[in-house]
């Protein structure tokens, strides 16, 4: 099959895709690297020459840097906890035979199809609004003072919104994992005298460990870069400024492209460190 001719033909035909992908990745990456070493203020004089590592130093020494790392971590870890725990429970539940299984499963996956901006707006205006929101009505029904979600519990609110979006993904992956569990193993454990909780702990959870690692890996990579949910709800106020949001503010609100680019490079490094460790965890799981 792989004659000289077919190989060169294959190369020519693959070329457009490869060039497009490389361009897509390399052009922004080199531009970010380039700008991160520049003093570049578009509305205040434009390109003002090289800045050395000035931008990198300024980005990490600014008072907003460590709080932004903290809120990023809180959001990522919070969402991971909620989606994995609820995902395992929901997957368990959906695995039970029931009437209308197909429809229920489609409904469960539905939030994943809603655009982040839309779902954040829906949550903000229809659920969390302190006057007209559904939650406010619920609170009032029980005679409680409605909570001003986005200003009183801003991080928690964002974690809720993002968890709602990502729960279907976790559930779906975990459900397929649960379905691949050999039912005879559970029956054997039952015969061996393991009650329901022990069966879950000794058989189901270990079986799910690989799927959980995959869910954590994929979600972390996407959650590090959540933006729309913050942009349309709190706008970065009330301590919800994540690393991604800080970069956005540096570039567009402070009009300091150099400083923002340096932050972008930090974000790339951070994401790669996380990905590296998670890959190792997943890899270990795949070996066993």
């Amino acid at each position: 099959m792989a004659t000289q001719q077919s190989r060169s033909a294959a190369r020519i035909m693959l070329a457009p895709a490869v060039i497009l992908l490389l361009g897509w990745m390399l052009v922004p990456l080199t531009m970010t690297l380039y700008f991160s070493f520049k003093k570049y203020l578009p509305l205040r004089g434009g390109d003002l020459g090289w800045a050395g590592f000035d931008n990198y130093v300024r980005f990490v020494t600014s008072s907003a840097f460590w709080p932004s790392i903290q809120s990023t971590l809180i959001i990522v870890i919070g969402v991971l906890l909620i989606t994995v725990v609820l995902g395992v429970l929901l997957a368990q539940l959906l695995d039970q035979p029931m009437w209308g299984q197909g429809i229920v499963r489609i409904l469960v996956i539905a939030p994943f199809f809603v655009m982040p901006t839309v779902s954040a707006l829906v949550w903000k205006n229809m659920f969390m609004d302190p006057v007209n929101g559904l939650l406010a009505h619920l609170w009032k029904f029980f005679g409680a003072q409605p909570v001003e979600w986005l200003s009183d519990a801003p991080l928690f609110s964002i974690i809720m919104i993002v968890s709602w979006q990502w729960l279907p993904f976790a559930t779906l992956i975990l459900l397929t994992a649960i379905q691949s569990l050999d039912s005879e193993q559970l029956e054997a454990a039952e015969m061996d005298g393991a009650p329901v909780l022990a069966r879950f702990g000794y058989i189901v959870l270990p079986h799910l460990s690989r799927a959980i690692a995959i869910v954590i890996l994929i979600q972390t990579i996407f959650l590090l870069s959540i933006f729309a949910e913050i942009f349309v709800t709190t706008g970065g106020a009330f301590g919800t400024r994540t690393l991604t949001y800080l970069i956005f503010q540096r570039v567009l609100e402070s009009q300091n492209v150099g400083l923002g680019s340096a932050g972008g490079v930090y974000a790339i490094v951070l994401a790669n460190i996380v990905a590296y460790f998670l890959m190792r965890i997943v890899g270990k799981n795949l070996d066993a």
Binding site: E184, E187, A188, A189, E190, P206
Partner: peptide
């Protein structure tokens, strides 16, 4: 009586060993 309390042990066709 629940399977565990019947005092019987079963060997399955797929062996049903716990892989981990």
């Amino acid at each position: 009586v629940s399977p565990a309390k019947r005092g019987l042990a079963m060997v399955f066709q797929s062996y049903a060993l716990y892989p981990h």
